[in-house]
Design a protein around this nucleic acid. Structure first.
Lengths: 211, 211
DNA sequence: CATCTTTTGACAGTTACTCTCAATTTCATG
DNA sequence: CATGAAATTGAGAGTAACTGTCAAAAGATG
């Protein structure tokens, strides 16, 4: 679910956090902030790691140490644990579509409340920059595996069966397309509505338009 | 549908084919052949463009001229027109799932008959090499757009509607997972059976496993 | 404060890819 | 078949994203 922005660590998380750890978080954030700014100014391709390093006041080596690839600076995703917990927390008799509706709603509400601009930038880059899009799809596949686990627990199906794998990936593919649609239409709609509509399609199939 | 191998141009295609054109086709094929061989010998990452150029007896410049990126040498896809024609040729009252069943069956039969080894190599690389996988997903998205067009014609729905977009991409996501599953399980199963099972899931949802 | 560990930056090297230009090859025409 | 136009190729220079190594700096620890 890489098109969402990163969830803030809860305030009462771990008070005793060493200076080392705090600095690492700061550096990470500095690199991200520098990257976002530079991309807004010059575009993705024109922004080099060196420029990012300069603005974030670290060395290029450090940038690579924090993010294995340039796209990762934009796309990094810390949502999976949150989503997974939420998935398991839903009542057992709820349909998978309703479960997803709730989970996605929760995640999107948080994401939109925290950093709506970054979320928009990310989805836009997902459309415009192939490398970013590729990274998003990778991350989507990972989330798909988690979804599979959760669905396996609920349904009693083998998580490694073709059926469950296909199903989970088809759901993720559909949700991915929502992100793309949202960005391509200039973030006109409320993405939460789009997700709801997508889940309707995934649950019931295409509405018949003939009549 | 990038995991299939390229369809041969039909014999009675275009007899008057200039020397220029014939040479281009030869060069293209030489580069591909060299690449496949080198990858089998040393793996994808260890194979450089320079080595490919050497073995294909062209200059590195030429390799880049024929294939914009290294992955493209492996993944290039000429199936879309074939698939599209087949899609339109199916009877109007056939369900989308049956249409896809036929189209995929046809394409896979051809592909398996022509170059089964290349198809296996491709899918394997799709699992092992992120860049190849990314390129495959791109190509999948393109095919998804074609599928959308075809479905729009059949259903009367707007091809640009969120609903149709989501639906088409969810189908493609599911099919993509088939390719992955096939490769990850060591090409044990007949991929045509896997595709059939996937389409069942996409058409009817998950089978209930409880009873 | 001394030492042990982690993090950082400098540097060198590789490779995919881009661009430009001149040489070569194919094609069309008189 | 000669010739000029057009397409194709190869050589070379340049860029930028990575990788790996090593010594210096900074934080943790007793």
């Amino acid at each position: 679910m890489t098109f969402m922005t990163a969830p803030r660590t809860t305030p009462a998380d771990r008070p005793p956090l060493g200076l080392r750890e705090r600095k690492k978080i700061k550096t990470r954030q500095a690199i991200r902030t520098a990257t976002y700014a530079l991309i807004e100014e010059q575009g993705y391709d024109a922004t080099t790691i060196e420029q990012i390093a300069d603005r974030a006041e670290v060395s290029p080596s450090t940038v690579f140490r924090y993010f294995p690839a340039k796209e990762d600076i934009v796309v990094t995703d810390e949502w999976d644990p949150v989503i997974m917990a939420e998935l398991r927390a839903r009542p057992q008799d709820e349909s998978w579509a309703d479960v997803l509706r709730h989970v996605m709603r929760t995640a999107l509400d948080l994401s939109l409340a925290e950093e709506p601009e970054v979320m928009r930038l990310r989805t836009r880059l997902g459309v415009e920059v192939p490398a970013v899009r590729a990274r998003m799809m990778e991350s989507m596949a990972v989330t798909g595996r988690l979804l599979r686990e959760a669905l396996a627990e609920r349904s009693g199906l083998d998580p490694d069966s073709l059926e469950l794998r296909v199903f989970a990936m088809s759901v993720m593919g559909g949700l991915m397309e929502v992100s793309r649609y949202w960005a391509e239409t200039g973030h006109r709609d409320d993405i939460r509505d789009l997700v709801d509509r997508a889940l309707d399609v995934l649950e019931h199939g295409l509405p018949s338009a003939k009549p």
